[in-house]
Design a protein around this nucleic acid. Structure first.
Lengths: 260, 260
DNA sequence: CGGGAATATT
DNA sequence: AATATTCCCG
């Protein structure tokens, strides 16, 4: 059986909220190293990869590998009933029909318990190759969110250009064009504001802003976001969750002249 | 060429926000004394007049007269990308296709740069006669805003009556009627709360509240608002911006029995 | 003063 | 349901 206790229900709420518009149904793959999720969006342009390691839970117990096939819309509905500060325990049998979620409020004596029906989902197994990226940018997640929503006002696409001078997000649209440029920046007092750019070669790629804005729903998970780019390869946007856990989004670049 | 640096992007954000629902497209007329804007609303009931003198900028440079024809909805979209505390520099060539806006964040190393496409707009040149008003009222802009929104709950119109006793805003509607009366009032400690009434003869005029509520979006520009009235003449509502700069709204009175 | 959250609205 | 606005916290 599976039993995993999450100190902050918020973490799962945010994860699910950030991916529910991309993926309708998906498996939560549970084993003795934690809970993983991988799924492509309907149009097969974006890929979501979540890993919640055992350390994210206390305690964590998973006797054998289970795939929990969940409808994310239903899960969202259930999670809406959890306060952000609630303690969330998820449980499932070894061959489960339902996923059991228990919310305990920290302050008052309320316990909410939900059973969510599970479904069988075909595993389209997704091998994600480890890539050495030409450019790796770490920046405040709020800043990335701001840039994406701001540029969304100009266009559907953004060209991300990483060079030794910095990283430039640029969009061109009907009413004009816009660009935001960031330089590496280290703030000793507030490391969460750091902008760090590591570059082996210059990169310039164009992406759909709609997807990027969607990814940014995960901003609450972490102060910082990591953006990895290489030519001809999907962009990686990564939010770290306590410890080695993470929520990653991959997005294929637009090619050719789509970049208007 | 034009190059004008505004210490606080907020000022332009607020100006544009206050007029964008009245005017869709208008010229920013730039010359060596500053940047001016005059436009009537679609129904030709209200007139907006903005003047940003050179002193509002540092530095300010304008080699020759330029009319920058701007779609205010597009400009609003671009300005939304500016933080209130950003330093805003606007630039244009002598015969420009685009207006260039640069936002520099004060703290971190972000530079956002936007080009907004310009359009040709026919100058309907508006001579605004200098008027000696029968009544001139200065009051806190927040107070004026409150009165207008409160009375909006009763009616579409407000009758403003200035007499030696004070100024009275009165509305009559289906559910009843309401009136707010202010007297001159000097507060030594907090001059921004002053109410000052200067009167050469009593005045009573009726105006559309919808427009007045709209004008009040400019309240953030100044603690005080100046309201000038004369019989048979448009109302003037003026917000001062640092120095001699201002945002003025003119509104024709309702006539006859429309005043319900 | 700015950002996030909660709320009201379309 | 998504967005715009307002309130409150950091």
């Amino acid at each position: 059986m599976l039993e995993a206790r999450l100190e902050q229900a918020q973490v799962l709420k945010r994860v699910v909220d950030a991916i529910k518009d991309l993926v309708q149904d998906c498996n939560f793959d549970c084993n003795d190293s934690g809970i993983a999720l991988q799924a492509m969006d309907n149009s097969h342009v974006a890929l979501v990869s979540m890993m919640l390691k055992t350390e994210a839970f206390s305690p964590y117990r998973c006797d054998r590998n289970i795939a929990l096939g969940v409808n994310l819309t239903s899960l969202t509905r259930v999670l809406r009933a959890a306060q952000n500060e609630d303690i969330l325990t998820i449980k499932a049998e070894d061959a489960p029909d339902v996923l059991n979620l228990v919310f305990e409020s920290t302050d008052n004596d309320r316990i909410s318990e939900y059973d969510l029906k599970l479904m069988d989902i075909d595993q389209e197994h997704l091998g994600i190759p480890e890539t050495e990226y030409a450019a790796t940018i770490a920046m405040p997640s709020s800043e990335f969110k701001r840039i994406c929503t701001d540029l969304m006002a100009m266009s559907d696409s953004v060209t991300i250009e990483a060079s030794k001078d910095g990283i430039k997000f640029a969009s061109t649209g009907d009413i004009g064009n816009g660009a935001v440029t960031l330089r590496s920046h280290t703030n000793v007092d507030k490391p969460e504001l750091n902008v760090n750019i590591e570059l082996t070669e210059p990169v310039s790629l164009t992406f759909s802003l709609k997807y990027l804005v969607n990814f940014c729903k995960a901003s609450g998970l972490s102060n910082q976001v990591k953006i990895c780019l290489s030519n001809e390869v999907p962009l990686l946007v990564e939010y770290n969750i306590s410890g080695n856990s993470y929520l990653r989004f991959y997005l294929a670049p637009k090619i050719g002249d789509e970049e208007n």
